[in-house]
Design a protein around this nucleic acid. Structure first.
Length: 588
RNA sequence: CGGGGCGUAGCGUAGUGGCUAGCGCGCCUGCUUUGGGAGCAGGAGAUCGGGAGUUCGAAUCUCCCCGCCCCGACCA
């Protein structure tokens, strides 16, 4: 039994100044966590109980699926990460350190290498597979900008599991088992979630889905189809390419003087104002222009290369989408020095005439999927103050490839059914993906198959953010008074308050608490003497235990009150029957 | 990485060159109070984020660093 009189807890009457998002604000105010460094938090007793409940549920569901728990160190040697290239690829995000002999170590950001090597050391036959092992472990990532309390920390706890199979079919089965297990886990955690298609990012590999908890403070944007069950992270949305357009009758491309039109808006305005440029049938729009943006992509090893992206002028490049496809390269601006190095590029008037591996600049030129053969564009003429009209894709220029990195908008076409897409934000609480053979190849994880041939094992990698899930639940489950925990993760089932100054209420509360405990109900008893009722009521609402009982004023009439934290519904129960009734309410 | 804002006791804050750094919450002692963050009285608690400088004098001005929050990252 937890007692408020001795619990290591201090609730705050006011919001901490540095906390913006509700989960951060409330977890600090209610005394669940305290910050110790940027993106690094301590768990206080109530918070640690919630954290362990979440961890327990995750573990129980893993075990129920037949997966086996192992435990790796956080302190890892450099070598395996060197072998897979991630010592470099991870860049500044990796926490690096040296021992007294100046050997390089790192604090594990994730453990693919370690799992792969462990299995390699033990197993060498197809008969040993399939295998799924997992751990619940503290991870370290030196994020550029930790934010939102424990939602994005630099030290956090993750459940990561890995499957090992001989065949692609086996991998698909292991993947499916994880998917099912995750669904059960998140249901038990009381989290609302959406499963979306995702990019595999820095991990490499193919099929990948994310479990996102929808909330406005989420860092991931995703789309959901209004017509079918398609859902995808915006990074993974595939823009449907229209069929080839008929370019018959479009006049030959012609360059026009368009002084003072360095922006799309000014170009469209001038094109519509001037009779020699105007379209007879309708006004020009930004979507008729082909905007060409040049980036400098920097590799982890410090080398860099230019990349030009052409897309309809009414769209922006979504930097996150671009980053996702260029990984591990990082796109940055094409600065003045770069322009100086490529004299064929005229700032503000860059066009397909200079872009492309076979043209003057030699810069790789990729276009949006909407730029299909036969489409007609206004675009830069590679001369200051000039644009080209009636430039037809496929007829007048050919790009080096397709790159789907334009911003995704609400209302865009669903790639699965064509209906309008809805845009929302969410917190990534789980990620499952079919890694394939990248790590097994790099680290030489091979087994003998039934024909005695050495084959490379195929892997899956699956993660749940355990500490993040605590914040995600808080984010989804609170009101203006405080937290509202789902019962299974709550620090207790019942918050039992004794109010008044008579010994009678405290004695009665003690008796009820004892009876509840005997029935297996977890109790937080507010047995503080001399603390006014308002303080106790407010604390109980802030702390967010699902059932609140009050032994006070009405005890004289033989009643205690029960309040449901989430609905606010109150009922009076006879003292003698209260404990049994509440135990039933708590499912005991 | 860039821009802006901010950093004063455990928490929230006032204090724009002047003498003992103020207030509220919280904490301690005493008395009163007990159904929605009680009252009175007394008290403890701050190297004013850190460092360097300007000045007779710095929380206050300057520079550097650290940290926090927000916005942005290319518009061709």
């Amino acid at each position: 039994m937890l007692r408020m009189s001795s619990l290591f807890l201090r609730t705050l009457r006011e919001d901490p100044a540095d906390a913006e998002v509700p989960s951060h604000r409330l977890l600090v105010r209610a005394g669940y966590v305290r910050r110790v460094a940027p993106g690094v938090f301590s768990w206080l007793p109530l918070g640690y109980i919630v954290y362990r409940n979440v961890e327990r549920i995750v573990r129980e569901e893993m075990d129920a699926a037949g997966f086996q728990e192992v435990h790796f160190p956080s302190l890892l040697p450099r070598e395996p990460f060197e072998t897979t290239g991630r010592w470099t690829e991870y860049g500044d995000t990796l926490f690096r350190l040296q021992d007294r002999k100046e050997n390089d170590y790192l604090l594990g950001p994730t453990h693919e290498e370690m799992f792969t090597l462990l299995v390699k050391g033990e197993y060498s036959s197809y008969k040993d597979l399939p295998l799924v092992i997992y751990q619940i472990q503290t991870k370290f990532r030196d994020e550029a900008r930790p934010r939102a309390g424990i939602l994005r920390g630099r030290e956090f706890v993750m459940k990561d599991s890995y499957s090992f199979d001989v065949t692609d079919e086996g991998l698909a089965i292991s993947y499916g088992r994880h998917r099912d297990s995750y669904i059960k886990t998140f249901e038990r955690l009381g989290l609302e979630y959406v499963i979306v298609s995702a990019m595999s990012g820095a991990m490499g590999g193919s099929a990948s889905e994310e479990f996102l908890a929808p909330t406005v403070v989420g860092e991931d944007s995703f789309v959901r189809c209004s017509g079918c069950d398609y859902a995808a992270n915006v990074e993974a949305v595939q823009t449907p390419a229209p069929g080839p357009a008929d370019a018959t009758g479009i006049p030959a491309a012609h360059a026009e003087d368009t002084p003072g039109t360095p922006t799309i808006d000014s170009l469209v305005a001038v094109s519509n104002e001037r009779s020699d440029l105007a379209r007879p049938d309708r006004q020009w729009t930004a979507a008729d222009t082909l905007k060409n943006i040049v980036f400098t992509v920097t590799n982890p090893d410090g080398t860099s290369y230019p990349l030009a992206v052409g897309l309809p002028g009414d769209r922006e490049v979504d930097l996150k989408r671009l980053e996702a496809v260029l990984q591990p390269g990082v796109p940055g601006p094409f600065d003045e020095a770069e322009f100086a190095r490529h004299p064929s590029l005229v700032k503000g008037y860059i066009g397909p005439g200079s872009l492309g591996e076979s043209n003057a600049s030699g810069i790789r030129f990729v276009v949006d999927p909407r730029v299909v053969d036969g489409t007609r564009w206004i675009t830069g003429a590679d001369t200051a103050g000039k644009h080209v009209y009636d430039l037809v894709a496929g007829r007048d220029f050919t790009a080096d490839g397709i790159l789907d990195v334009a911003e995704v908008r609400e209302g865009d076409e669903c790639p699965a059914c064509g209906a309008a897409l809805l845009l929302a934000r969410g917190i990534e609480i789980g990620h499952i993906f079919q890694l394939g053979r990248k790590y097994a190849d790099a680290l030489g994880l091979r087994v003998l198959d039934e024909h005695g041939e050495l084959v490379t094992v195929t892997m899956g990698s699956y993660g749940i953010g355990v500490s993040r899930a605590v914040a995600a639940i808080a984010e989804q489950s609170h009101d203006d008074k405080g937290l509202v925990w789902p019962r299974e993760v709550a620090p207790a089932d019942v918050h039992l308050i004794a109010t008044g100054k008579d010994d009678a209420v405290f004695d009665a509360a003690e008796a009820i608490a004892a009876e509840l405990e005997r029935a297996g109900v977890r109790v937080l008893l507010d047995d503080r003497r001399g603390v006014s009722p308002g303080v106790k009521f407010n604390d109980s609402e802030l702390i967010g235990i699902p059932t609140i009982m009050v032994v006070g004023k009405r005890l004289a009439d033989g009643f205690v009150e029960v309040k449901d934290r989430s609905t606010g519904e109150r009922t009076d129960l006879e003292v003698g029957r209260a404990a049994a009734a509440v135990a039933a309410m708590c499912g005991r």
